[in-house]
Design a protein around this nucleic acid. Structure first.
Length: 202
DNA sequence: GCGTAGATCGTCT
DNA sequence: GACGATCTACGCT
């Protein structure tokens, strides 16, 4: 599953002011026309979701709630409508550039935590919709996959905000690095503990 | 710490 | 005309 393989990989954002590097810690898969929670459900194509049907390796960016943007990586073949939502990342380099886009005293581990925060912190908007992610101002680096045991365990859970998607709501398509502080909401077993500074097992 | 409400607008019915 | 793959502030415990 590609969504799981994206964990631990790097997102590179080139801005006029400099470069931001982020490491993905939380993703969510949207499985195509048969997935009721997906914008591509039923094979629907509209001007908004058209880039979801591009060949893999492109970006699908859309606005939500009139306020936020969400960044997806198209992972299917051309015409399949399969993509992965990037829900959370950890800042590796360029933290000052991220903070410049996010007002207020925000803990480092929360700077790119959550789909809306990730796009805001990286300065991603619909201008990048359909962009190639192997070149240009936003790139995804396919380096070493996350090695089990070296960077935390991968945990799996139901997707967020898909409660009304019928049985698809319970599909285990959300992946995260277990216990990582930048995970927006802990899948299944993990819960947040401020006293212990992050997400902890029950 | 927890739950709830409000923001805000493009997109689709 | 309604609502959404969200976030934050705020009030209560």
């Amino acid at each position: 599953m590609v969504a799981r393989d994206l964990l631990g990989r790097y997102l590179v954002r080139e801005l006029p002011e400099g470069r931001i590097i982020a490491r993905l810690v939380e993703t969510e898969a949207y499985a195509g026309p048969h997935d009721r929670a997906s914008h591509a459900f039923g094979g629907r194509r509209t001007p908004r979701n058209e880039s979801m049907y591009l060949a893999g390796g492109r970006a699908y960016v859309y606005r939500i709630y009139g306020i936020h943007f969400c960044l997806n990586v198209v992972t299917g073949g051309e015409g399949e409508g399969i993509a992965v939502l990037l829900r959370g990342a950890e800042v590796i380099a360029g933290e000052s550039l991220v903070r410049a886009r996010r007002a207020g005293p925000i803990p480092t581990h929360r700077l790119l935590s959550g789909p809306g925060n990730l796009t805001r912190g990286l300065g991603v908007d619909v201008a990048l919709d359909g962009a190639h992610l192997d070149q240009g101002e936003l790139r995804l680096i396919f380096g070493e996959p996350l090695a089990a045991g070296t960077a935390g365990e991968i945990v799996v859970g139901p997707r967020v905000g898909c409660e009304s998607a019928g049985d698809a709501a319970t599909w285990p398509l959300r992946f995260a690095i277990g216990g990582h502080a930048a995970v927006s909401r802990p899948p299944v077993a993990f819960r947040f503990s401020a006293s212990r500074g992050g997400y902890v097992p029950p």
